[in-house]
Structure formats: C-alpha cells, structure tokens
C-alpha cells in the first residue's frame, strides 16, 4: 500500500494512497468539523463544513472527498475557514426551526455541538420559520422536519447499509425535504424495515425514538459501526 506524506496545519501526517484528507486528519488526531459525513457510508461533500485550504489550489476542497497526495499542504483552521464555518452554521440555524430548549437531542446534538465548537453564538440572518410537520405515524420513530438539516445521512444508511431504500430527498432548494417511499406517512411505508438506522444516523433531533422528551434522545452509533465493520472488515465484534 503506497504511503503518502502530507502536512495538515503544519503537522507532518502519513497516510495511505486513496485515503481522504479527512481520514488522514482523524488518524492524526486533528479535528475537521463535519456534518454530512458519517463513517461507513459514502460521502457526498454537501455540508461544506469540512472545506480546507490546500496550497496551490485556488478553490477550497471538501476534506471528506479529497484524496491525499504526496507533499500536500493542508490548512484546516484559517480565519477565513472559521468565518465560513460560522456562517454556514448561521444559515442552518436560520433555515428551519431549531429550538434547542424543546428538542429531544438537546445536549447531544451535532449541530448544537458544532455551533459551540465554532463559536457561533448568534445568527445575523433572518429566521425563516418555515411551517413544517412532524411525522409520528411510525410505530417506533418520529420525524420532525423542523429540525432536519438535509445532510442525507438517513437516506444513505437506508440505501447503502440497510438496503431498504425507503428514505429519499424530494423537492429542491429550500423546499427539499426527506420523504418516506413516495412521500407517504412513515407509518404507511411498506418498505421500511423499522431497523432504526436512520434514527441512529441523524445528527440532530429530526429523527427520534417515540417517547423521548427534551434532551432524552440518545443515539447508539455503535450499532452502525457494528454493521459497517462486519461488512467492510468481515469482523463480527460482540
């Protein structure tokens, strides 16, 4: 396996060919903020939070889909990147109705954590307050579109880990939303296996176990990790 040496924020890092900048950074203990990335499913480069600067490249590159190259110089913490990340988070908070105080994921929310980590303490954009519904037709799970950030992690685990292809994205632009089957109530779905992987994958309080109330929603990512490890490495950890 050919080895590539690069620097991330001035720190020498070794990686293997084919690894992404994000993987290499994580291996070296360097944190790059992510939202749409989820270990085990393919990356889409959609949230733009993992954008990094690479010497010699005028564009910013998403670390999750950019492969390492020999001698690459990566910067993850410039003032410009920090400003962009804060602004992207501001846009997300203004987009739907993210009210932490009444959210099942309060305290365990990736969006909330990102805002804290990136120092996003206020929103300068006009809140959109879109009228979104909550789908609690499913026996075990609920979907609150007000809290969805459209990262599509639920869609990808549903398609590529469970293989049920129940979840999808419909509409476009600001009107895009996660749907079940052909935009039916979740409880009416004939393809949903009720595996709950989408609930485990959700970064915010958009997908939740029914019955959990404010700050009670805990996710168990080890369930996803178990399946991915079993499939990719043929190891069954108990």
């Amino acid at each position: 396996m050919p080895v590539r040496t690069l620097t991330i924020d001035g720190k020498p890092v070794s990686a293997v060919e084919g690894q992404t900048v994000l993987d290499a950074a994580q291996d070296a203990g360097i944190t790059i903020p992510t939202l749409c990335h989820l270990d085990g499913v393919s990356d889409v480069g959609a949230c733009r939070l993992c954008l990094v600067e690479v010497t010699g490249v005028s564009r910013l590159l998403p670390a999750c889909v950019t492969k390492v190259t020999e001698g690459m110089e990566v910067r993850t913490e410039s003032e410009r990147l920090k400003r962009y990340r804060r602004m992207i988070l501001e846009l997300l908070f203004a987009e739907r109705n993210h009210v932490c105080a009444v959210c099942v994921s309060n305290g365990r929310c990736e969006l909330q954590n990102l805002a804290v980590a990136q120092g996003m303490d206020h929103v300068r954009f006009a809140y959109r307050f879109p009228p979104y519904e909550v789908d609690i037709t499913h026996r075990m799970f609920g979907m609150d579109h007000n809290r969805c950030v459209l990262c599509s992690r639920c869609v990808r685990v549903c398609w590529f880990i469970e293989g049920a292809a129940t979840k999808n994205v419909a509409g476009r632009g600001a009107g895009a939303r996660i749907i079940t089957d052909l935009s039916q109530p979740w409880g009416k779905s004939e393809t949903c296996t009720s595996c709950g992987k989408c609930v485990q994958a959700c970064p915010t309080g958009a997908k939740f176990h029914k019955g959990s109330t404010v700050a009670e929603m805990e996710r168990d990512r080890s369930r996803l990790e178990f399946i991915v490890t079993a499939r990719e490495k043929k190891q069954w950890i108990v």
Binding site: V44, R48, V149, L150
Partner: peptide, 13 residues
C-alpha cells in the same frame, strides 16, 4: 437543488 448548504440556504438569505 438543495444539496449543499451555502447554495440552498445562502441564496434564500
């Protein structure tokens, strides 16, 4: 299309 945040939410703002 709504896939990436800067375009989806940024154009709205």
């Amino acid at each position: 299309c709504g896939k990436c945040i800067p375009c989806r939410a940024g154009t709205v703002q």
